[in-house]
Amino acid sequence: MPTPTEKETSQTLPERPDERTARRRRSRILGAVAAAAGLALIGFIVWGVWLASHPKAPPLQGQMDATTIDVAAKVPGRLETVNVKEGDQVSKGQVIATLYVPEIEAKVRQAEAYEKARQAQESLAQEGARPQEIQAAKAQYERAQAAEELAQKTYERISRLYREGFVPAQRLDEVTANLKAARKQSQAAREQWSIAQTGARRQEKQAAAALAAQAAGTVAEAKSYAEEAKIVSPISGEVSRVLLREGEVAPQGFAVVTVVNLNDQWASFNLREDELKDLRMGSVIRVKIPAIGGGAHDFKIYFINPKADYANWRATRQNSGYDLRTFEVRARPVSPVEGLRPGMTALIER
């Protein structure tokens, strides 16, 4: 008969006890692993269902803002020079552009000429008549006084002759009229001499002084407009936009350059009122700025105010409930944040 193979021999041999124990142990381990895997799968499914029914609230999103000034020309004119470009740092009072305004220069010259004329009138009123005019008035008075004395003597002689009957009454009337006229002329000449010595009246001097002051004010006004041809930055900051170039006409009040103050920045959030429960005036919040990376930064809330009434109401439910208003919340960094710029996204984790 043929000899049985080794495999057939192993299959016919009875299983040893130690092998049977190891096989049972492996079966129990595999069963436990399978049971644990099943429980883990069930737990994972339950956890997924719970997460699906309780999604994580998204962060409150806002953006950075800063004090921005549109530097405009107070008077219209053509831009002669623009001394800055985007990204330049400027200081308060720095001349960033100049205008060419020939009309203002002409106004300044006219005002200065007007001021000189008014000053001359005031000087004339204060000084009074010239010495030659005073001497002339005095000579006129002395001449009138001599004529009065002659008329007086003539009247006395004719009056005596009339009493003695040598001259008619007509002649006496003539010399009497001449005497009265001579006295009036002498009095008028004396008044003219007094006026020349005294000069202008107090009211005339005051009027002349007021007109001179008005002329000085006109000059100051014209020069102030000339100074407005130099466009200066009202704040220190960074040039973010240059809106007009050299040679272009700058209308009155139209921005030439935009300057942003990077030292005065804040985060602005538009939030529904149901999102304000943990936000209070003066409280410190943690804000992330994805653009600069790193962790969150401390910001202090300094402004909470409702937005305008239009388009900021939201119903809590479709058919009932109440409406929620939108509030603007602003917060400034507690300490300077390197790299922070306006327009960057700001996030508050919830």
Rank of each mutant, 00 (worst) to 15 (best):
M1H: 15
L13Q: 13
E15G: 05
T21P: 05
A22I: 09
R24C: 01
R28F: 06
L30R: 11
I42G: 10
Q63D: 07
V71E: 00
P76V: 01
R78M: 10
E80M: 08
N83K: 12
S91V: 12
V95R: 00
I96S: 03
V101L: 08
I104C: 00
K107V: 03
A120W: 11
E122C: 06
S123Y: 12
L124Q: 15
L124F: 07
E133V: 08
A136I: 15
A139V: 02
R143F: 15
R143L: 14
A144N: 02
A146R: 13
K153P: 12
Y155G: 04
L161D: 06
L161R: 01
V167T: 04
L172I: 00
K180L: 00
A182W: 09
R183D: 03
E191W: 15
S194N: 12
R201H: 06
R201C: 04
Q203P: 03
K205Q: 13
A212M: 06
E221K: 09
I235S: 05
I235K: 03
V242F: 03
V257W: 02
S268P: 05
L271N: 01
D278G: 14
D278C: 07
S283P: 10
A291R: 08
T316P: 04
N319T: 15
V329M: 08
G339I: 06
G343S: 02
T345H: 05
